Amino acid sequence: MSLQESLERFKKQQEKCHSTLSSIANGRNSVPPLPSAAAVKFSNDTERLQHINSIRKAPVGAQMKRVIDFLFETRRAFTPEQINEACYVDMKANKDVFDSLRKNPKVKYDGQRFSYKSKHNLKDKNQLLQLIRKFPEGIAVIDLKDSYPTVMEDLQAWKAAGQIWLLSNFDSQEDIAYPNDPKVPIKVDDDLKQLFRSIELPRDMIDIEKDLQKNGMKPATNTAKRRSAAQIQGASSKPKTKKKKSEISKRTKLTNAHLPELFQNLNSS
């Protein structure tokens, strides 16, 4: 092949390459693109999915507690689907959880929705006071705690207002609410009266204060501190003698001349 022919052939190849590149650039290339492999998708929410999986694999009791806590905090009724979205407990997939919640005394199920069920159906502060007044013998605070979210604050408010008493039960270390109403009769067993009367109190007030502190009560007095302060200040228990009023003497300047009866002694002398 001559040199001229080689040059012509090379020129044709360049023109062909240039035409191909132009077609590609202008989007007119008729050659179909090669099929790309399907992209592998990795979840960016792996931690949340692991958390949901751990909840659903937890024991039945743990899942029940999670749902009951959710119902207690919201105080609303939810379907199983809504509960699953809120706290990731799938009751439809776990029949044991569903049946256990349906029978739980703290849960109300109306056939469609679950809600929290307190021992006493109270809504506000006034209903709380009305209930306490129905129990002159006292009602346990633990039975009132779950009535509604602010019940404990309302108990303290009624106590501060003098409407109720909150006393501790030494056996169970729990508070008992009593109505502070003079019209409500309070019955005391004869055995309790006899026990109270048979208790012999210490003669010294310091010993009484120590017994109160031993039983978890704060004495209203502090006899030891008072006696110590009296010794430091040298306080005496003897009554002070009153000074005798001085009589009017001749050196007293008479200014109340219009009351001569006050100075009869002086004039007579």
Rank of each mutant, 00 (worst) to 15 (best):
L192W: 08
K159M: 08
N169T: 10
D191P: 00
E174P: 01
A177M: 04
P185K: 00
L192P: 01
N169D: 09
L195Y: 02
D154P: 01
I186C: 07
D189F: 03
I164Y: 03
F196Y: 15
I176M: 04
D191Y: 05
K159S: 03
E200G: 05
D154C: 05
K159H: 12
L195C: 10
V151F: 10
A177V: 06
L195R: 12
Q194C: 11
Q173W: 03
M152Y: 04
E174C: 15
V151E: 00
I176D: 01
V151I: 11
W165G: 00
L155S: 14
Q156T: 05
F196P: 00
A157W: 09
K187M: 05
A177N: 11
A177C: 01
R197V: 05
D175R: 07
L167R: 13
Q156W: 13
D175T: 12
E153C: 12
K187F: 04
D190I: 07
K183C: 15
W158T: 09
K159Y: 15
G162D: 00
L155F: 01
I199D: 13
S172M: 09
D175A: 10
E153H: 14
E200S: 14
F170I: 09
V184Q: 09
Q156P: 01
A161R: 09
D190S: 13
A161M: 14
Y178A: 08
I186D: 06
F170D: 10
I164D: 00
R197P: 00
R197N: 08
D181L: 07
L155I: 12
L166N: 01
A157F: 14
P179A: 06
S172E: 12
W165L: 10
K187E: 02
E174L: 11
P185H: 03
S172A: 11
L195V: 05
I199A: 04
K159T: 02
P179C: 04
K183W: 04
L155V: 11
Y178G: 05
E174M: 14
K159N: 07
Q156V: 11
D181N: 11
Q163A: 11
D171Y: 09
F196L: 15
K183R: 04
I164L: 02
N180T: 07
G162V: 02
N169M: 03
D189S: 13
K193C: 15
D191N: 06
Q173S: 13
K187D: 01
L167E: 12
I164P: 00
D175N: 14
I199K: 13
G162Q: 03
D181E: 15
D175V: 03
S168E: 13
D191R: 11
L166S: 06
S172K: 08
K187S: 08
D189R: 12
W158F: 11
N169R: 13
V151Q: 01
D191G: 02
A177Q: 14
D191S: 00
I176H: 00
N180I: 08
S172I: 06
